[in-house]
């Protein structure tokens, strides 16, 4: 019996860890959606870029991969700003479907750009702490997973301090709550759009680094499914609500890992969509959503 609890505890911890990746993706998507009301299906490509940046510089320099967060986040903030300026700004307000379609174009560009440089084979990298585990009661926890959970928590705390305490952060929240009102208060909402998109991409980049460090395999086409799950999470957790994204991300991480454990690995992806469809059947605006955007 004790062994059973240990296994369940292990699975729950995997859920917590994979939830971290989803939380970072969903928080970024939620920020972007809150401010710009834009749906960027190419968000997973930022995750993919993050893993490849980490992989490339890790192989090149041999630095501790966690330090590479300070590289992948700024690079992706820059990439996000460029993408917003060139692709999303021109079509802002022309309809939800256009945003989805333009992200399809971006998906093709990013995936195959990376495939051209790194080929499309599956890769993985080994973290320097890969063999270390810490025993918590009967459960053996890999040190990497603990660091990943901690790093995610630190990133989220930094984000919330930035959003709540700094002037720029307050301006972002204001544009998210009422775009016109923010404009009247002298906030440059277009600059906030760029910044928010950049932060969202940066969070996805951080998720990418954590993905690579954890030893999971990756290839240039890995991003689409996690990104769409990110959307499932923000629909579940409520549009524009960051606590919702955190709870939703954890929930999806847990549900996925328990499903994979009980039903077999092939159901890992499908289960989050089943959950999403069931929720939307009962409540077409999402669990906490007020308006059907």
């Amino acid at each position: 019996m004790d062994g059973g609890i240990a296994v369940l505890g292990q699975v729950a911890f995997w859920g917590l860890y994979s939830g971290c990746i989803y939380i970072l993706l969903a928080t970024g998507l939620n920020l972007i959606f809150g401010v710009m009301k834009v749906v960027n299906f190419a968000h997973g490509e930022f995750l993919m870029l993050g893993t490849y940046i980490t992989f490339f510089f890790f192989v090149l320099s041999g630095f501790n991969p966690y330090l590479l967060l300070f590289l992948s986040i700024p690079i992706l903030i820059g990439a996000g700003i460029i993408v917003e300026r060139l692709c999303f700004r021109p079509i802002l307000g022309t309809g939800k479907l256009n945003e989805i379609f333009i992200s399809l174009g971006l998906i093709y560009i990013f995936q195959n750009g990376v495939a051209m440089v790194f080929t499309d084979e599956w890769r993985s990298m080994k973290s320097p702490f890969a063999d270390l585990t810490i025993a918590v009661g009967p459960i053996q926890l890999p040190l990497d997973y603990i660091i990943i959970v901690a790093v995610t928590a630190i990133i989220l705390v930094c984000l919330s301090v930035f959003l709540n305490r700094t002037t720029t952060g307050k301006a972002i929240r204001a544009s998210s709550q009422n775009r016109k009102g923010a404009m009247l208060m002298g906030i440059n909402v277009e600059r906030m759009d760029m910044l928010t998109f950049g932060i969202g991409a940066g969070l996805a980049g951080a998720a990418g680094t954590l993905w690579a460090v954890s030893g999971q395999v990756f290839n240039p086409y890995m991003g689409s499914v996690p990104a769409i799950k990110g959307f499932a999470i923000i629909i579940l957790g409520g549009l524009g609500s960051i606590p919702g994204a955190i709870i939703g991300g954890l929930a999806i991480g847990m549900v996925e890992n328990f499903t994979a454990f009980f039903l077999g690995g092939s159901w890992k992806d499908a289960i989050s969509f089943i959950l999403l469809i069931v929720v939307l059947l009962v409540k077409p605006t999402g669990l906490f959503g007020e308006e059907g955007e």
Binding site: V39, K96, L97, E99, I100, V225, I228, F231, A232, I235, S266, W267, D269, A270, S272, F273, I274, L276, I277, L280, P284, G286, G292, E293
Partner: peptide, 20 residues
Amino acid sequence: RLREWFLAMVTFGFAVIIQT
């Protein structure tokens, strides 16, 4: 009952579920 991108998500999800 769903609109635009919720619908897009759900149809994407169905393709994944059926393939699984």
